[in-house]
Amino acid sequence: MKYLHSDPDILDGSVVVKGTRVPIDVILYRIQDRYSIDEIQEIYSWVSPRMLHGAISEAFSEALGAITGRVANVV
């Protein structure tokens, strides 16, 4: 994965935005709670917009792949 990472030594292996300790599930829950991408960017200002968008896109692609059984391309 290009934007996401999991390591047993970081947050017990939770999937995080690569190079950070920001769990992607927290970001996805914020999206579900109707936070805008700009609001999320303000909360995690140390994560570049490119990295944030890439991580969200990659997480959705992984989820769709799990649901459909197909590998999704990350844009």
Rank of each mutant, 00 (worst) to 15 (best):
E39F: 03
R21T: 07
V47Y: 07
Q41S: 04
S6N: 10
K18I: 13
L52D: 10
V26N: 05
I27S: 13
A63P: 01
A72C: 08
A55L: 12
V74D: 15
V75G: 15
Y35D: 09
M51E: 10
S6Q: 14
L28P: 00
I56Y: 10
S36A: 09
Q41E: 01
D33N: 15
R34K: 14
V16I: 15
G13F: 11
V74G: 11
Y3G: 08
H53K: 11
S14P: 00
I37P: 02
Q41I: 01
Y29A: 11
I40V: 10
V16R: 08
V74L: 14
A63W: 12
V26F: 03
A63S: 07
Q32E: 15
V16T: 14
K18E: 14
G54T: 13
A55G: 12
K2T: 05
E58L: 10
D38S: 11
V47W: 07
P8D: 05
Q41G: 02
I27K: 13
V75E: 15
L11F: 01
S61Y: 09
I56F: 07
E62Y: 06
I43P: 04
V15E: 09
V47R: 09
I40G: 07
Q32M: 15
I37T: 13
R21K: 14
A59C: 04
R21D: 08
I40R: 03
D7V: 10
D7C: 03
S6I: 01
H5M: 08
Y44D: 04
G19T: 03
N73R: 09
S6H: 07
V74W: 14
I10L: 07
M51W: 14
N73S: 15
S14R: 15
P8L: 04
V47M: 03
A63Q: 09
V16F: 09
Y3E: 03
E42D: 12
S48Q: 01
V47P: 04
V22D: 13
E42P: 03
F60D: 01
L64N: 00
P8C: 05
M1S: 13
Q32H: 15
S61V: 13
D25E: 09
V15R: 05
Y3M: 03
V74A: 14
G19S: 09
V15D: 06
Y3T: 06
S57W: 11
D38E: 14
P8H: 05
Y44L: 02
D12E: 14
D38P: 01
L4K: 01
G69D: 00
D12R: 08
S14T: 02
D12F: 08
G69I: 00
H5L: 07
V15M: 09
R70V: 10
Y3I: 08
W46K: 13
G69E: 01
L28H: 02
Y35K: 14
L64Y: 05
G13C: 05
F60E: 06
S48M: 04
M1F: 09
Y29V: 11
G65P: 06
D38G: 11
R50N: 03
T68C: 02
R30S: 12
A59F: 02
R50D: 15
I56R: 12
D12P: 08
F60A: 01
N73P: 11
L11K: 05
S48T: 12
A55W: 10
A63G: 02
R21A: 08
D7A: 00
G19W: 01
